[in-house]
Design a protein around this nucleic acid. Structure first.
Length: 263
DNA sequence: AAGATGTGCAACCGCCCAAAT
DNA sequence: TATTTGGGCGGTTGCACATCT
């Protein structure tokens, strides 16, 4: 039952990689591509565990890696993404081409933490260190258009509610909740969704496949063929606008939420 | 000059989850 | 359905180098 045995760990090297090992790994992956890390070491003639090969390739040998110092823009983007995602380094790395999760994690721990602390900002909570500890602010960000027209005009209003909590509430919160709860939900305002659906599909009761995927004004959109008006930029389940810069995450009509999902 | 301490980062460890059987 | 494994991830460690005393 189950899979075939895992890689032999008895005869594997550990520690720093030699130049020869690097070259063997590069040569093998160039010839055969990535994947099947378990069988790779043997096939490549390496006395390493598959995981070690994968790590070495992803974090150091990959040709598309951007080596060198982080730019100021990258710094700020990492801070923004960390405030949104927490320690989800792989997701953050997904938004920084050429950077690896390990690199960003190290950079955060060695540079950015200090940078934020010097600004008087708690790097974990992204709040001022000087904020009184007896109360805690809970910030809810909701996306809502004030009117149907706003929605159609592709505007997003960010509504921020700050709720002061008393000490007792805070203690309960501390006991019951982890430091940061970053459940990300993106959806259109509920009171507009039906209107929008009606508007969009007033002549047809069903939504085409491309629209259900959030691909608007696609040449494959059958809605435009049925109602003649084309899609009115509604994205079912996603209230993201073409080219909107969502917290610094440039979107191209769609927020690539796959890279924001937790695994 | 030499030992102590601090810093940066590559690599490892252990856990989780989906896939395979 | 239960069990096992591979791949992926975040946290941590340990080493090399830099700086301080």
């Amino acid at each position: 039952m189950g899979r075939s045995p895992c890689c032999e760990k008895a005869h594997t090297n550990k520690g720093a990689w030699t130049k020869e090992e690097d070259e063997r790994l590069i040569t093998y992956i160039r010839a055969h591509g990535e994947g099947c890390w378990r069988s790779l070491p043997k096939a490549a003639g390496l006395l390493r565990c598959g995981k070690s090969c994968r790590l070495r390739w992803i974090n150091y040998l990959r040709p598309d890696l951007k080596r060198g110092n982080f730019t100021e823009e990258e710094d700020e983007l990492i801070i923004k993404l960390h405030s949104l995602l927490g320690n989800k380094w792989s997701l953050i790395a997904g938004r920084l081409p050429g950077r690896t999760d390990n690199e960003i994690k190290n950079y955060w721990n060695t540079h950015i933490r200090r940078k934020l602390l010097s600004r008087g900002i708690d790097p974990t909570k992204h709040r001022s260190i000087n904020e009184p500890t007896s109360t805690q602010k809970v910030t809810t960000i909701s996306f809502a258009g004030d009117s149907k027209d706003d929605y159609l005009d592709q505007k997003i209003n960010i509504k921020v509610e700050s709720v002061e909590m008393n000490k007792e509430d805070n203690e309960i919160q501390e006991k019951c909740l982890p430091d940061l709860n970053l459940e990300l939900r993106i959806s259109p305002p509920h009171h507009q969704q039906n209107q929008q659906m009606d508007h969009h599909h007033q002549r047809s009761n069903s939504i085409c496949f491309t629209c259900s995927l959030g691909i608007q004004n696609s040449k494959d959109c059958s809605c435009s063929k049925t109602n003649g008006n084309g899609c009115s930029n509604n994205i079912v389940g996603m209230n993201i606008i073409a080219g909107y810069d969502f917290l610094g995450l440039k979107t191209n009509g769609l927020l690539d939420y796959r890279t924001l999902e937790t695994k």
